[in-house]
């Protein structure tokens, strides 16, 4: 149990306080949420570094997937979600294939990204994809150059997707609205512009 040391000196008190990192800033629920969303036993990481060693992003950035696993184990929610490196995972799943504890670090990253979005932390490009899908059904919609090319190939100018059947778009919007996804994306994007 932590004790008040009573040095009689506020500065010393501050300096010499218990600094165990899993006391104040840890959120045990964070680990539970990560486990549920990732569907992997994220608590079982033993920090061997096979994941980072497999990671194509690691050698060219400060992104260390092992560190995110550690933050997950300790429930260091803020430290994990506020680290922009979270968005450097290409989801190649090499770490997942090699993890000796049979965990899926990639899915842990995906879970943490989900949790970050819940607190409005998300890169803009992700939100723009959301808006495009909401509007057209496609993350990468058709354009005029491509339409012309399609016709030359003997294909319909628009593919037989929501592009040709826009009557399906309201259904897609309903699904996204169910989770308030578009609403949140719009809000975060507009707040970012202010």
């Amino acid at each position: 149990m932590a004790r008040v040391k009573d040095y009689g000196n506020a500065e010393l008190e501050e300096k010499l306080q218990d600094t165990s990192y899993y006391a104040d800033d840890a959120n045990p629920q964070f680990l539970e949420d990560v486990k549920k969303l990732s569907r992997t036993a994220a608590n079982m990481c033993f920090q061997c570094g096979t994941c980072t060693g497999s990671c194509p992003s690691a050698p060219r950035s400060s992104y260390r997937i092992r560190l995110f696993m550690r933050r997950g184990v300790l429930g260091l929610e803020k430290e994990a979600l506020n680290d922009p490196d979270l968005w450097l995972c290409t989801t190649c799943y090499s770490c997942t294939d090699r993890c000796p504890r049979d965990l899926a670090p990639t899915d842990v990253i995906m879970a943490m990204r989900n949790l970050a979005f819940k607190v409005d932390i998300v890169p803009r490009n992700f939100l723009k994809t959301v808006q495009l899908i909401y509007k057209t059904g496609h993350g990468v919609p058709n354009n005029d150059v491509n339409r012309a090319a399609r016709v030359k190939l003997g294909l319909p100018a628009d593919p037989p997707t929501t592009h040709s059947y826009p009557e399906f778009i309201p259904g897609i919007q309903k699904i996204m609205d169910f989770y308030k996804m578009k609403e949140n994306a719009d809000r975060i994007l507009s707040e970012g512009e202010q």
Binding site: Q47, C48, G49, T50, C51, T52, G53, S54, A58, R64, R66, L67, S94, C95, R98, P100
Partner: peptide
């Protein structure tokens, strides 16, 4: 750090060992 993978240089037959020095991150 546990070795993630090993690749061979096809010419020299040397081996590239990939891992993380976890103590240095």
């Amino acid at each position: 750090g546990r070795v993630a993978n090993i690749l061979e240089d096809p010419i020299t037959k040397n081996l590239m060992v990939y891992a993380e020095d976890t103590l240095l991150s």
